[in-house]
Design a protein around this nucleic acid. Structure first.
Length: 561
RNA sequence: GUGCCCAUAGCUCAGCUGGAUAGAGUGCCUGACUACGAAUCAGGAGGUCGCAGGUUCGAAUCCUGCUGGGCACGCCA
């Protein structure tokens, strides 16, 4: 999908390259290869619409002052058929391109045609991505880390889809293994205790009130019928009951949070055959050995710090072994082009060995991307809040959504880049004022909708607006706003390449800010009917861009507030 | 002790593969509603980019060392 800005960049780049060739033929600039250089939108408006550092990058090869090189390039630059109006040398040797404003008018047309699709690019070319995120343990409720991971993952999925990838949102259900064992033992302990029998929550087990609640509810259904059966049967019944309830609760909480997964992948599926096949594969390739009664993977041969146990001396597989089988399933069995995992910082030590394991079984580990997300701290009254005041226990994701709302929660979690620690200010998130950035953006959207509603009073239809003449828009605030709207496809590309949704959050804040500036500087409802139509087209396009971005972020775009 | 992440305005953070005078929000100060939503806008003050070296036309950005904080180093997940 081509877009206005992209086309212009391509044209300027090819003009520069043509000019360089001519300069070379004339002996003005010597070079073997064109070095890497940048064509960017400069931060300073005085530096034009686009700028390049090509002349500075050529100094070494050309052995010439960059400003002289820049002059040669400009001398031979063919600007026919481009929007370039003026070219200047600036600073140490930048070449600044000032464009005719008419390119911005094309952007408005582009938006009015593409609508919800404006911003879409074909970077991904339909490549299949498996994006696994949240994957909270089904042994209890979700916490802040799951909230951040959920917001990050879902928005990243939307960005990648916008960038032309085919994305599967996946949740891995840890419904097997050691922690489920502990879960069962904890449930059993409470079950027995409720009948006055001896019961002990195991070391590292689950002490939370929710475990007791499960046991009580279980008793309401099954009474004492599991009191005198063997422990294995009793635990299995308790686990089956509580796990299903917890998983259903996870699904409900995530849905309330605006996240819908395509695949819920249960760990127990891997224990049938995938795990054995993975072990066999590693064995055939000579990547495992036995020591102290356990089976080890030679992870240190593949960039990890040390070797890792796959099968414990009690015969049970480790989490790591199952994870290897899971990622073989993703990248080989299901053959995704790329698997992206979002993990909390406390799992970062796992990255090198899992990538190593992929290489060891012959899967290119660059097909596995792990986003490490730093931890979240909640603040209330300027202090770290760990406990819910009302419930007296740790604050869950559903507590947070209940308190601040889904929009604020998702916006705040996507305001910071994933590798920076996130301080979540609860007081700010619930504030319905100008201090709260999520309201700032939503207000811009509602404000536009309000004006558009009044459009009919002026006897104008959406049709009339789309036929408006944008070249009437000449005010500084109008041009600035249009320039920003033009950047959306480029922002999507950078966010997709860097796997960084927070970039989009900041972008939409900029759009809202420029809209408000425009609004305060220019009236939309003016006497001049043609100008009014053009301005309506501008705000209607702005509304579309805000809407598209908020949709990516999973945040509502209210028409009234 | 070893590895990974972080350190930029009073506070919370941007700064895309090295580029021009380091930006935004918030807080503080001064202004703007008889006009489309003031949940808004315009302006001002506020910096040794943790410290010290190095690489080069150019470093907040890359390299090395140090300081301070987070996380991880288990036959847990």
């Amino acid at each position: 999908m081509n877009n206005v800005m992209n086309t212009i960049e391509k044209n300027i780049l090819s003009s520069i390259k043509d000019s360089l060739l001519k300069a070379k033929e004339l002996g003005e600039i010597e070079y073997d290869e064109i070095p890497d250089f940048i064509l960017e939108v400069p931060r300073e408006k005085d530096h034009g619409d686009f700028a390049t550092n090509i002349a500075m990058q050529l100094t070494k090869q050309a052995k010439k002052n960059p400003r002289l090189i820049a002059q040669s390039i400009i001398d031979h630059l063919d600007t026919q058929g481009t929007f370039i109006e003026k070219v200047e040398i600036a600073g140490p040797g930048f070449i600044n391109f000032k464009l005719d404003n008419s390119w911005l008018y094309d952007v408005l047309k582009d938006i009015s045609i593409k609508k919800e699709k404006y911003g879409a690019i074909d970077l991904g070319k339909g490549k299949r991505i498996n994006l696994e995120f949240v994957s909270a343990n089904p042994t209890g409720p979700m916490h802040m880390g799951n909230g951040r991971g959920g917001a990050l993952g879902d928005s990243l999925a939307a960005i990648l889809e916008m960038a032309g990838y085919n994305v599967t949102r996946e949740f891995y259900i840890n419904d097997a293994g050691n922690q489920i064992e502990k879960f069962g033992q904890s449930l059993e302990a409470r079950y027995l205790q409720l009948f006055g029998r001896e019961g002990q929550v195991p070391e590292g087990g689950y002490e939370g009130e929710d475990i007791t609640q499960h046991a009580k509810k279980f008793i309401e259904i099954h009474g004492d019928s599991y009191l005198d059966v063997d422990a294995h049967t009793r635990r299995k019944a308790l686990i089956d009951y509580a796990l299903e309830k917890n998983i259903n609760q996870l699904k409900k909480d995530l849905k309330d949070y605006g996240i819908n997964f395509d695949v819920w992948f249960p760990e127990h599926k891997l224990h049938d055959s995938a795990l054995g096949e993975a072990m066999e594969l590693l064995n055939k390739r000579g990547q495992i050995y036995e020591k102290d009664g356990a089976i080890w993977f030679k992870a240190s041969d593949f960039g990890a710090e040390k070797d890792e146990v796959l099968i414990r001396n009690n015969g049970f597989p480790t989490y790591f072994a199952v994870d290897i089988a899971y990622h073989i399933n993703k990248l080989k069995t299901r053959n995704f082009d790329l698997a992206i995992n979002i993990w909390g910082a406390d799992h970062h030590g796992h990255v090198a060995r899992l990538k190593g394991a992929m290489d060891a079984v012959g899967i290119d580990s660059s097909r596995l991307e792990v986003i490490i997300m730093q931890l979240v701290r909640l603040f209330r009254n300027g202090e770290i809040a760990r406990m819910s005041k009302r419930k007296g226990k740790s604050i869950t994701l559903s507590d947070l959504v209940e308190e601040v709302g889904r929009d604020a929660a998702r916006f705040f979690f996507n305001m910071r880049s994933s590798d920076s620690h996130l301080d979540f200010d609860l007081d700010l998130a619930i504030k319905q004022s100008n201090e709260n950035p999520v309201f700032y953006v939503q207000y811009a959207h509602a404000r536009i909708c309000s004006i558009l509603r009044q459009m009919e009073e002026a006897g104008l239809s959406a049709e009339d607006i789309n036929q408006a003449n944008p070249s009437l828009l000449k005010e500084e605030q109008e041009l600035d706003l249009m320039r920003k709207l033009a950047e959306l496809p480029g922002e999507i590309e950078i966010a997709a390449r860097n796997l960084e949704p927070s970039r989009i959050t900041r972008y939409v804040l900029d759009v809202a800010s420029l809209l408000h500036s425009f609004y305060n500087a220019c009236r939309v409802k003016v006497e001049d009917r043609e100008l009014m139509k053009a301005r309506l087209l501008l705000i209607s396009s702005t509304r579309q861009v805000i809407y598209n971005v908020l949709k990516i972020l999973g945040i509502s775009a209210p028409e009234k507030m």
